[in-house]
Design a protein around this nucleic acid. Structure first.
Length: 455
DNA sequence: GGAACTCGCCAC
DNA sequence: AAACGTGGCGAGTTCC
C-alpha cells in the first residue's frame, strides 16, 4: 500500500499531475530531417562494420552452427558460439543462470571481433531506442513524452512514449547522436535546472550526520575527492577528476545504496585497469601508483577497500549508519514508514529497500514541488517559456530568450529558497545548477549557453 | 500472430 | 544476515 497521508502530500500529487500534463501537452521539438539522415548514416556504419566481420572467426563459427540463420544480435547464438564452440569461459551468469553476453562478459573473453560487435550494439541502440522512437512518437515535429506519478514503488516518476529520462548523457558519441535530435521551438532555447547532490542532501535531512552536514554546508569540501584519496592512497596534488569519479560512482553511491566492499572493490578494479582515464595528474597510470603503495593486486585492493568501508561507516558517518539501523528497526516494528514529504510506504521491503525508498522518493518530491511552483508562476505571469520535461532531480524548459534572465532567477529562487522554506525538515542547503543551450541549437549543446551575466 | 518472458542497456 | 536502489524499451525467444 502506497499512499499520501497528509493533505500536503495529496495536494502535491494533484498539482504535480496538472503541471506534468501541461509539460506533456507542450512537448519537445524533434529535428525530423536529422533523425532520418542519421538513421541512414548509422545503418551504413552498422552494415560496414558487420561486413568487416564476415570472415572473422566469430562469424565463421556462427555460420558453421546456424548456417544462414546465424544472428550476431542474438545473445543465445552468441553464448553458444563463444562459450560452447570457441571454448571461452563465461565470466558471469545472468539472473536465470545462463552464461552472460553483456558487454563486460564479451570483453572478458578477449575475443578479437567483440569490439566491432559492441560498436554495432551501441549504434543499434541509437537507431532503435532513441532516433527511431523519437520519429515514431513525433507529430508534426513535436513529441510528447508522458510523465507518470503512479508507477514507481519509491514515489518517483517514470516516463514513457518515449522515455525522456534515459537519453544518453555519459558516452560522448551517443550523447551527441541522440541529443542532436532534440531542439527548442524556433527562436527559443533549451534550459535545464537540476538539484546538485539531491539524494545526498535529502538523506542528510533524514539522518543528520554531522560530518555529512559539513560536506553539504561547506562548498570547499568534497566528499568524493576525500574518498578517492583514501581508496587509492593518494596525496591531494595527484588527483584528477576521472579518479574522483571512480570513487564517486563505484564506492560512495554504491555504499549509500547498500553495496558492500567486495563488489565495490571489483567495480573499482575494472575502472583502474582502464589506463585511458585511470591516471594521476602527472600522467602516471593509477595502477602503477597502487602497486607502489601496496594495493596493486585485486586481493590487496579488496582488503584495503574492506578497511575503508569500515571507517566510512563507523568513523566518518556513524550517525548515518545508526540512522539506517533505527529506520530499518522502526519499519520492521510498524510494517510501514512515512516519508517527510507525507507519503506512506506499506509493503514488503528488504533492508536496502527500506532505507533507500524514502530518500529516493523525497528527493523527487522536492523536484516535483519546485516544478509545480515554476509552472504556476509561468501560467500566472503569462510566460512564453514552458516546462517541457523532468528527469527525477532536474527540470527542462523551452525558453524564449527575452525571458532568460527572469526564468533563471525564478528557478534559483524557487529551487533554493522557496523549497527549503516550504519543507522545514530540510536541514542543509539545496543547490540548483542551471545550464542551457544557445538559441536554436539542440540539446547536445547543453552547457554552451553563457549564463555568467545572470546571478 | 500476439502475450509474456529474458537479456542487455540507457538514465537518475 | 545480507550484499546496488528505481524505471522503460527493443530484440530475441518461447508459448499458446
Amino acid at each position: 500500500m502506497l499512499m499520501p497521508v497528509t493533505s500536503e502530500a495529496f495536494s502535491l500529487l494533484h498539482r504535480g499531475t496538472w503541471a506534468l500534463a501541461l509539460a506533456e501537452r507542450q512537448g519537445l521539438c524533434i529535428d525530423v530531417a536529422y533523425c532520418n539522415k542519421t538513421i541512414r548514416r548509422v545503418e551504413r556504419r552498422i552494415e560496414n562494420t558487420m561486413g568487416e566481420l564476415q570472415d572473422s572467426p566469430l562469424f565463421a563459427a556462427g555460420r558453421k552452427v546456424y548456417g544462414r540463420k546465424f544472428n550476431p544480435a542474438s545473445n543465445d547464438h552468441l553464448a553458444q558460439i563463444l562459450y560452447s564452440d570457441l571454448g571461452y569461459t563465461p565470466s558471469k551468469k545472468t539472473a536465470s543462470g545462463k552464461a552472460s553476453t553483456d558487454e563486460e562478459s564479451l570483453r572478458a573473453t578477449g575475443q578479437a571481433d567483440i569490439v566491432k560487435l559492441l560498436e554495432c550494439r551501441k549504434l543499434e541502440k541509437i537507431k532503435t531506442t532513441y532516433l527511431g522512437n523519437f520519429l515514431k512518437e513525433q507529430i508534426d515535429g513535436v513529441m510528447h513524452p508522458f510523465f507518470n506519478l503512479n508507477r514507481v514503488i519509491t514515489f518517483r516518476s517514470s516516463s514513457s512514449s518515449p522515455n525522456f529520462q534515459n537519453i544518453p548523457n555519459r558516452d560522448p558519441e551517443m550523447k551527441l547522436l541522440a541529443r542532436q535530435a532534440i531542439i527548442p521551438r524556433p527562436g527559443h532555447l533549451l534550459l535545464c535546472a537540476d538539484y546538485s547532490g539531491a539524494e545526498v542532501r535529502i538523506a542528510n535531512s533524514y539522518h543528520h550526520d554531522p560530518t555529512m552536514t559539513t560536506y553539504n554546508k561547506d562548498s570547499s569540501k568534497d566528499m568524493h575527492r576525500d574518498m578517492a584519496l583514501e581508496l587509492f592512497k593518494l596525496k591531494p596534488p595527484q588527483i584528477i577528476k576521472p579518479v574522483r569519479n571512480i570513487a564517486k560512482g563505484k564506492f560512495v553511491f554504491a555504499q549509500f545504496y547498500g553495496d558492500w566492499y567486495k563488489s565495490c572493490a571489483e567495480g573499482m578494479w575494472q575502472d583502474v585497469l582502464n589506463e585511458d582515464y585511470a591516471k594521476l595528474a602527472d600522467g602516471t597510470p593509477l595502477l602503477r601508483h597502487m602497486k607502489k603503495v601496496g594495493i596493486g593486486t585485486p586481493e590487496a585492493f579488496e582488503n584495503h577497500v574492506k578497511k575503508v568501508e569500515r571507517s566510512f561507516w563507523y568513523t566518518r558517518f556513524p550517525v548515518y549508519a545508526q540512522w539506517k539501523e533505527d529506520w530499518w528497526e522502526a519499519y520492521q516494528n510498524k510494517g510501514y514508514f512515512d516519508t517527510y514529504t507525507g507519503f506512506r510506504c506499506q509493503t514488503v521491503m528488504s533492508r536496502n529497500d527500506a532505507v533507500n525508498y524514502p530518500i529516493q522518493g523525497s528527493a523527487f518530491h522536492c523536484l516535483l514541488w519546485s516544478l509545480c511552483r515554476v509552472t504556476e508562476i509561468s501560467i500566472r505571469d503569462n510566460w512564453k517559456s514552458r516546462i517541457v520535461g523532468q528527469i527525477h532531480d532536474e527540470m527542462v524548459l523551452d525558453v524564449h530568450p527575452s525571458e532568460l534572465e527572469l526564468v533563471v532567477r525564478t528557478l534559483h529562487r524557487v529551487m533554493e529558497r522557496e523549497l527549503v522554506e516550504h519543507y522545514a525538515w530540510i536541514t542543509v542547503p539545496m543547490l540548483a545548477d542551471v545550464e542551457g543551450s544557445p538559441v536554436d541549437t539542440p540539446w547536445s549543446q547543453k552547457g554552451k549557453l553563457d549564463l555568467s551575466g545572470i546571478l
